[in-house]
Amino acid sequence: MRTQLGDELIERIRTHPTDDDIVGTAANDLLSELYAGYPVENLGRLLHSDNEVVVRTGAWLLSELVELAAPMIDELPALLAGPIRNVRYYAITVALANADGRHGPIIAQVLNLSLDPDEAIRWKMLEFLAEASIEQLEAGTSCLPPGQLKELVEWLILQDDEEPDRTGIFLRMEEGDPVTRLFAAAAAASLGLGLLEHAAMVEDETIRSFAQTRLKRLREED
C-alpha cells in the first residue's frame, strides 16, 4: 500500500539521521512515492523535526517536487527564516515555483534573503531574481518597507521594458554595493548575451559564477 510505504520511508529518515546511506536511499524512494501520489502534507513530519538532517531532507524533497509542493507553501516562512543554509536555499526554489500574487509576504521574505551574506544563498537569490515573474516581484515589493531593497526590486521590475537601463545595469554591476550588484546581475541575465557576458567577467565571484553558468546553459541550448 503506497501510504504505508511512504510512512515507512519517513520514519526511516526520522530514525536514522546519522546514516547518510539510509537517509539518501529513503529520500530518493520517498520522492518517487510523492510523485506517485503519496500526500505531500506528510512531509511536515520531517520539516518539524528537531534534527537538522531530517529538516534538510524534507526541504530538499519539497524543492524537488516543484509545483507539487504547493500544498506546503505555508511552511515556507519558517523554512526561509531558519538557521540552516540548505533549508533556506531549498525554500527559495519552492517559493519561485509556487508563490504568486496571493503570497506577497512570503515573496518579500525571499527578497530579504538578498541581504544574506552567505554566498550560496546569494547565488540562489540571483536565480530567483532572474526568473521571478513580474507578478511575483510586484507582490513581494508591496510587502517590503521603504528602503534600498524595495527600491531595487522596483528598479528590477522597470527593466522588463522595451528600453531597459542598460547603462545603469553596467554601472550597478561594477560600482554598486553587493546587494545592488546582485539586482543588476539579475537584470543582465534577462537581457541577452552582451550584458550576461559582461556579468561573467566582473570581480564579484557569486555574480561571475552565476553568469558563467547561465551562459553555458544558453550555448548548450543553441
Score class of each variant (00 low, 15 high):
W123V: 08
L152H: 09
E119D: 11
Q148E: 15
S114D: 09
G101L: 09
L144I: 06
G168H: 09
K150L: 04
Y90F: 12
K150W: 05
A95E: 00
A132R: 03
E138G: 08
T141N: 11
D116G: 07
K124F: 04
L171Y: 13
A132L: 07
I157D: 10
I134T: 14
A91Q: 02
I169N: 08
L171N: 14
A120L: 12
R172I: 07
F128K: 01
T141V: 15
L158D: 14
P117C: 11
L129D: 00
A130P: 04
Y89F: 14
P164C: 11
D100R: 13
E175V: 11
G104I: 08
A108W: 12
S142L: 12
I107A: 07
L96P: 00
P117H: 08
T167D: 15
L96W: 03
F170A: 10
M125I: 09
W123H: 14
L144W: 02
E138Y: 11
I157Y: 05
L126R: 08
R102G: 03
E151D: 15
G104L: 10
A132P: 06
Q136C: 02
V179W: 08
I106S: 03
E119A: 14
D118I: 10
F128T: 02
L115M: 14
F128G: 00
V87C: 09
E131R: 08
L144N: 04
P117Q: 08
A95H: 00
G101H: 12
G101D: 11
I107K: 03
R88F: 06
D177Q: 14
A120H: 13
I134E: 13
A99W: 00
V110M: 06
D116L: 08
A91V: 02
Y90S: 03
D116V: 04
V153I: 07
V94I: 02
T93M: 01
I121H: 06
F170T: 10
D160V: 11
P145L: 07
L113H: 04
P105C: 11
Q136L: 03
G176E: 10
V94R: 00
Q109M: 07
N98S: 03
G147E: 07
L158H: 13
P117V: 04
I106N: 01
E135C: 09
V110Q: 03
I92P: 00
L129M: 05
E138I: 12
K150M: 10
K150C: 08
A99F: 00
T141W: 08
S133A: 03
R166V: 15
